[in-house]
């Protein structure tokens, strides 16, 4: 009897304590809510709702084609051509992916070859660019020397036109250098991607000078400072450069520059499969999904780092 009574008392105590906790928690939450409201002083509920509706509609516009591609790749041929079209499949099937792998198995050049080609181009292009661009961005951002202003100016101007404009001379230069029909024809021009250099420089401007001074006092030369102090600090920026360049190089089909079948990238091989016509609609969707997954995954992993870099992207 004693025992149960005691436990009963203990229980009420415990319950009281819990209640107190809950009250505290609610109070905390209320103050949090107040804080939240404070930031949103000049807002009307009607406006909020209207804007959320707009956001939702455009989000749908943005996502619909991608969702459709993904669901298409999971439909059988009979379901792709159904009237009226259905967004989501009744029977989920992976036969498109199976077909794709069978097709891939029958190509003259093994698919692994194309894959290695794309990987080579993407890897060397990206790594080379990140290294050269950061090396170049460091003095441009942090030190003054004759010609610096001119170079900064040139880089901003070069953002103002796209590479289509320089296509013909670029082709001529690549052929003079004897790079036609090699991976280098794509890799080397990618190193000179100016948007990357620009973003890297803007990010490096924010590094506090004291850090560089400290390294200097410790006896580091400029290269040591660059590798041991600057590079670790600009990690978000190099992730951004990697994402941007990766997207470009991953989807490249090498059309103008690479003619040997053995050297062609994955995107080319897959586009040949897509070219198979109506009967391959499902397989084509599978191809798109495969090409899509990689850059989007890379972005998902690095979104916050990329936004970090972009915060400093401004043009003065």
């Amino acid at each position: 009897m004693e025992k149960t009574k005691k436990t009963h008392e203990e229980k009420t105590l415990l319950i009281d304590a819990l209640k107190q906790d809950e009250i505290n928690w609610i109070r905390q939450k209320k103050t949090k809510m107040k804080k939240y409201r404070k930031v949103r002083l000049s807002r009307s509920v009607g406006g909020d709702i209207a804007l959320l509706v707009v956001l939702f509609l455009f989000g749908l516009f943005s996502a619909y084609p991608l969702i459709f591609t993904i669901t298409n790749s999971l439909k059988g041929l009979d379901e792709i051509f159904v009237f009226p079209p259905r967004l989501f499949p009744r029977n989920i099937t992976f036969e498109n992916f199976v077909d794709l792998f069978n097709l891939i198995g029958n190509t003259q050049v093994p698919i692994s070859r194309y894959f290695v080609n794309t990987l080579t181009i993407t890897l060397f292009g990206t790594v080379g660019h990140v290294f050269l661009a950061s090396l170049c961005a460091y003095p441009l951002a942090k030190h003054s020397f004759p010609g610096r202003h001119l170079i900064n100016q040139l880089i901003v101007y070069s953002l103002m036109f796209s590479t289509v404009v320089t296509q013909i001379p670029t082709y001529m230069i690549v052929s003079w250098l004897g790079l036609i029909d090699t991976h280098m024809a794509i890799i080397i021009p990618a190193w000179g991607f100016t948007l990357g250099l620009f973003l890297m420089r803007q990010f490096m401007v924010t590094i506090p000078d004291e850090l560089l001074e400290a390294a200097k006092i410790d006896g580091a030369n400029e290269y040591q400072t660059f590798f041991h102090v600057v590079m670790p600090l600009v990690k978000p920026a190099w992730l951004t450069l990697i994402i941007l360049l990766f997207q470009q190089l991953w989807g490249i089909d090498g059309g103008n520059y690479i003619f040997t079948e053995n050297l062609k990238p994955l995107s080319y091989a897959l586009s040949q499969i897509v070219a198979g016509g109506v009967a391959r609609t499902g397989t084509a969707a599978a191809v798109t999904v495969i090409m899509l997954i990689v850059p989007i995954t890379v972005f998902i992993i690095n979104q916050s780092k990329m936004l970090d870099t972009m915060a400093h992207s401004g043009l003065k």
Binding site: F58, G59, S62, A63, P65, L66, T69, Q247, W250, G251, S267, S271, T288, M291, L292, P295, I296, F299, I300, Q303
Partner: peptide, 12 residues
């Protein structure tokens, strides 16, 4: 992610 995805989706 939703809004940015189309511009990185290559040939999609």
């Amino acid at each position: 992610l939703i809004f940015y995805a189309p511009s990185i989706s290559g040939s999609a």
